Amino acid sequence: MTGNAITTMPRPCRCLNGVWAFAILTLVCFCLTTAATSAKPSLTPLSLTETPHLPHVNPKFRHPADLHQLFFLQRTINANTVVYTAHFDAAGNLDTETPVAVYWRRFQDQGQVMPLRWYERAFGFGVRLRTTDTPNALRLTFNGLKSHPLELRQTAPFTAAFFARINNRDYRLIYAYLDVDESGLFPKVTRLRLYTNDPLTGLYVTHTIAVSGGAYTE
């Protein structure tokens, strides 16, 4: 796919060769508050589960329901949540300047919005988008994992979604949840759960992935 770059550093896709890329992306996002990693994590798929309703993995943590929400990320360490939303123009089309916004929802406090810190935006959660040959679709890459694009698709006026290709199927991304072990000197990611929707069946699909070597130094 080719096109002109759309810079969306302060704000938030069928092109993904497996769940690995998204898992690595999520782990990169987790370590944004650290300066370096001690080792690259090893990822092992454990299961794929289909359910008629979207699971709420941690009922103690609120799920965001922001206007034009695309995706969110939560972790066991606290309720603070990273949220991605779409920006539209007055006609309901994705905004050409800043189609995606990303920010914190501080659910550990009062749920207020907090902008990303510069390093969170520059090295992990921030995104870049490029136009494609497909109408109403943009190629999206996260700054923390530029080699594995997703696709941002506009599906109707004022409606858009992130899509990933996993095991030769297109899934709509909803949220990710990281299990973090804080018992050692440094926090360690032990498991990733990626919650998606299968547009062909309407079912919600949970991809569970074990993580080893996911320790990060500050």
Rank of each mutant, 00 (worst) to 15 (best):
M1F: 11
A5M: 10
I6T: 13
P10K: 05
P12A: 09
C13H: 08
C15I: 10
G18T: 06
F22V: 09
A23V: 07
T26N: 12
L27M: 13
F30Q: 14
T34V: 00
A36I: 01
A39S: 09
L43D: 03
T44P: 00
L54W: 05
V57R: 13
H63S: 14
A65R: 11
L67M: 02
L73F: 11
Q74D: 07
R75P: 00
T76H: 07
I77N: 07
N78A: 02
T85S: 09
T85V: 12
A86E: 05
A90P: 00
A91C: 09
N93G: 07
N93Q: 10
L94V: 06
D95F: 10
P99R: 10
W104G: 03
W104T: 05
W104A: 05
W104N: 00
V113Y: 06
P115Q: 09
L116H: 04
L116R: 04
Y119F: 07
Y119V: 00
E120P: 04
A122R: 04
F123R: 10
G124M: 00
F125P: 00
V127G: 03
V127C: 12
V127H: 03
V127P: 00
R130Y: 10
T132I: 07
T132R: 08
D133N: 13
A137I: 01
R139D: 10
R139A: 14
L145H: 13
K146L: 13
T155V: 15
P157W: 06
F158C: 02
F158S: 11
A160D: 07
A160G: 06
F162V: 04
F163E: 13
F163Q: 05
F163N: 10
A164P: 04
R165L: 08
D170K: 05
R172K: 14
I174G: 06
Y175R: 02
Y175H: 01
Y175S: 02
A176I: 00
D179A: 13
D179H: 08
V180K: 08
D181Y: 03
L185Y: 07
T190K: 03
R191F: 01
R193M: 12
T196W: 01
T196E: 06
N197T: 13
N197C: 13
L200F: 03
G202S: 10
Y204V: 08
V205K: 08
A210R: 14
A215R: 15
Y216F: 13
